[in-house]
């Protein structure tokens, strides 16, 4: 079982990003995803900065993958996507089928991120034919769903053609909108957002009026209010899941990486915090804990 660091979903200052990736290079993580996946207005790091980080991480023997955006709305954003597709060195994670379309035209392999709607073996088979080499399961699916899908005869002959990755730690990306909810929380319009999301390195929490953490507002993205944590499910993933993804948090990401690695076989389980959840994997409501 390998471990990956997902793309940083929040808007962090450049220095913080560079420090995070220096720490990643020194860590035991196997795969690192890099790139802005939420909002094209976030430009602390530009494409060339990401490429420089990617090269540094490759030098540190990490497998590097460039993550592209989830919601493309404007022609200028597609031009930026084209740079990712044409990078010439690194595998690309597609989070919108528009990226798959471009990668397919260039006969390039790709990772289908969790926001690509692949819910069954037939869709997966089509994506493999288009060049998919790694499939990140949609976050709302369960162990049962994954197990059922992977055991279908339709994909038995291509089972070796792709890896399976599961989002295993962090606040789950659950929705993307035309509207910016962080700007809205500061009474600003999206056009006048002044990149205020940089002031919220782990997003802004939205709680119910009686105090339950419901969502995390992260620009145009809405995340789970709870932190998804599948550390105690790792033994059940054996033979099914090739890669477990940890989503970067401002603090403690690498400590959790160490804890996850220690519990691959179930020998170092961890108590979940009250703010953790694992419902989706257990076929419950996502915010539940089983």
């Amino acid at each position: 079982m390998k471990f990956s660091l997902g793309p940083v979903l929040y808007f962090w200052p450049k220095a913080q990003m560079q420090q995070f990736y220096r720490d990643a290079a020194d860590s035991t993580v196997d795969i690192v995803y890099l790139g802005e996946t939420v909002c094209s207005k976030r430009r602390e790091l530009k494409f060339d900065d990401y490429m420089a980080l990617a090269q540094m991480l490759r030098e540190a023997s990490k497998q590097v993958c460039l993550s592209s955006m989830t919601l493309y709305e404007a022609p200028g954003e597609l031009r930026e996507l084209r740079k990712y597709v044409d990078n010439g060195e690194f595998l690309v994670e597609a989070n919108d089928v528009g990226a798959i379309s471009m990668l397919q035209q260039h006969n390039l392999p790709f990772v289908a991120g969790a926001a690509i709607n692949c819910y069954n073996q037939h869709s997966l088979r089509h994506l493999v034919a288009m060049g998919l080499t790694r499939w990140v399961m949609p976050v709302e699916l369960s162990q049962h769903w994954l197990d059922t899908l992977l055991s279908q005869g339709v994909i038995s002959d291509i089972r070796d053609c792709f890896e399976t990755e599961v989002f295993g730690f962090g606040h789950l990306p659950l929705a993307w909108s035309g509207r910016c909810f962080t700007a809205r929380s500061e009474n600003r319009s999206k056009d006048q957002c002044e990149l205020c999301c940089i002031n919220y390195p782990q997003g802004r929490q939205a709680t119910s009026q009686d105090g339950t953490a419901v969502f995390v507002l992260n620009g145009i993205q809405t995340q789970s209010g709870s932190r998804y944590n599948l550390i105690n499910q790792l033994p059940a993933m054996q033979g099914m899941v090739d890669i477990v993804r940890l989503s970067p948090q401002p603090q403690g990401t690498f400590d959790w990486l160490t804890k996850f690695k220690a519990n691959i076989n179930g020998t170092a389980p961890q108590p979940l915090a009250a703010t953790d959840s694992n419902g989706y994997w257990l076929n419950l409501a996502g915010m539940a804990t089983g």
Partner: peptide
């Protein structure tokens, strides 16, 4: 719908059932 349709899992997060599934 204020979210990009087909890529919103808020409902299954709270209830286990989403538009997609």
């Amino acid at each position: 719908c204020i979210m990009a349709e087909g890529r919103c899992y808020l409902s299954s997060y709270m209830t286990g059932q989403s538009p997609n599934t």
